[in-house]
């Protein structure tokens, strides 16, 4: 059975007919061709697929597209404003917070969500906030550094 949904993604409204079982991440990747959101585990354990749904960080691999009906979704592609990187993006670049980059979109979305709630987190708070996001390259050290750096820079 297919369902009509309307989802705002990165400020643009999309109307589509989707299967009830289609995952939000597949809607973003396959239907909208927004491939910046990656799939790492399909079980919400790795966090590579983290996006914002109505401003809150969610794992898009365990959300159905139909659940996003009427919602506003922000993906990594929506973070850069014109020529200006989001402060968290800039900080990840500055602090070498990424290597292979596969977990990075999810990390940036998770970090952005953290800083909205807690603009000046401690190192322990940053580490706790990353519990749901796995990185296999960096040992997290420079991710933590990048988030602290973004916070000091006054990330919104």
């Amino acid at each position: 059975m297919r369902h009509q949904i309307r989802v705002e993604v990165n400020g643009k409204s999309h109307e589509r007919e989707v299967e009830a079982r289609q995952l939000l991440v597949h809607f973003l990747r396959d239907e909208l061709r927004l491939t910046g959101t990656n799939v790492g585990c399909e079980t919400s354990l790795c966090g590579a697929c983290t996006v914002w749904m109505d401003g809150k960080a969610v794992k898009s691999c365990t959300q159905l597209a139909v659940q996003a009906d009427g919602c506003s979704v922000t993906t990594i592609e929506g973070m850069k404003q014109g020529d200006t990187f989001h402060p968290v993006q800039e900080a990840f670049w500055e602090c070498h917070g990424l290597q292979c980059g596969y977990c990075t979109p999810g990390m940036i979305m998770a970090a952005g969500a953290l800083l909205k709630e807690n603009p000046s987190p401690s190192e322990a708070e940053i580490r706790q906030s990353l519990k749901g996001n796995l990185c296999r390259c960096t040992g997290y050290q420079n991710i933590v550094k990048a988030i602290a750096h973004a916070a000091q820079g006054g990330a919104q």
């Binding site: 491939t35 990594i76 850069k80 670049w93 990424l98 980059g101």
Partner: peptide, 21 residues
């Protein structure tokens, strides 16, 4: 020197194998 690889990877425009259709 900060990495030239990164602008694509922090914006989601870098293309991994599964990103190709």
């Amino acid at each position: 020197i900060r990495r030239r690889e990164d602008p694509a990877l922090i914006t989601g425009s870098g293309k991994y194998t599964d990103d190709f259709t």
